[in-house]
Amino acid sequence: MSTSGYTYLCRIETLQEGVPRRFEAQGVPVSLVLTGGEVFAIHDLCSHAAVSLSEGEVEDCAVECWLHGSRFDLRSGEPLDPPATRPVPVYPVTVEDGSVHVDVRDSVLSPQLDGGAQQ
């Protein structure tokens, strides 16, 4: 796979299983999560309260927002629990020769916040 359009974020060995880690790719906050041997990239701001998802807990391929407890599927960005009702973008990831790259230009969704949230 070509990494054209992808942004290098880190070496795979800097990620810990089940521990989200915040990066910035082309000005976009991204949380990388290694879980089940796979790397996922999700927009780092909760769609409900605009707080960092990389500070949350990971379980069963989902990350939990530490502030209000909404969980988001790492594969789709869909909210699994309230109070969040809008998904967060997820981004394509490639790992080549131990280097993790993300394409933030090709998100599944545009970053949006629920009604009263502020960025």
Rank of each mutant, 00 (worst) to 15 (best):
P111K: 14
R75S: 13
V108T: 15
C61Y: 15
P111Q: 14
L109A: 10
V63H: 01
E24P: 12
D114L: 01
L113K: 08
A49K: 15
E59H: 05
C46M: 01
L74E: 13
L32S: 07
W66Y: 10
M1D: 09
V90A: 05
C10M: 09
Y6D: 03
T94K: 14
E64R: 07
E55A: 13
E55I: 03
F40N: 01
D60A: 02
P29Q: 14
R71A: 03
P20T: 04
P29S: 14
V63K: 02
V108A: 15
R75H: 04
D106N: 12
P83C: 13
V108I: 08
G5R: 09
V90C: 02
L9I: 00
A50Y: 06
R21P: 10
S110L: 05
T94V: 07
R75Q: 05
S110Y: 15
V39D: 07
S52C: 03
G116Q: 07
V102N: 07
H101N: 06
S47M: 00
V63I: 04
S47V: 00
V63Y: 00
E78P: 13
V28T: 14
R21L: 09
F40W: 00
R22E: 13
Q112W: 03
G37V: 02
S4D: 15
L53P: 04
Y8W: 06
V19A: 09
T3N: 11
S99F: 07
P79E: 13
L74T: 13
W66D: 01
H101M: 08
V100H: 11
L67E: 07
E24S: 15
T94N: 13
S76A: 07
D97L: 03
F72Y: 12
P111W: 10
L45Q: 02
E59A: 03
S31W: 09
R105T: 05
G36E: 03
P89G: 03
S2M: 07
E64M: 06
S107N: 06
L74C: 10
Q112V: 05
L109E: 14
F23C: 06
Y8C: 10
E38K: 07
V93K: 02
T85G: 04
V100L: 01
Q16T: 11
V39P: 14
L80Q: 15
L32A: 08
H101A: 11
E57I: 01
P83E: 06
Q112D: 09
D73W: 08
V102M: 02
V58K: 00
Q118V: 08
V30S: 11
P111A: 11
T14M: 11
S54H: 12
D106E: 12
I12E: 14
P29T: 11
R86M: 10
E57V: 02
E96T: 13
V28W: 10
R105Y: 04
C61Q: 14
E96R: 15
G77N: 12
Y6H: 01
I12G: 09
V19W: 07
L67H: 10
I42E: 03
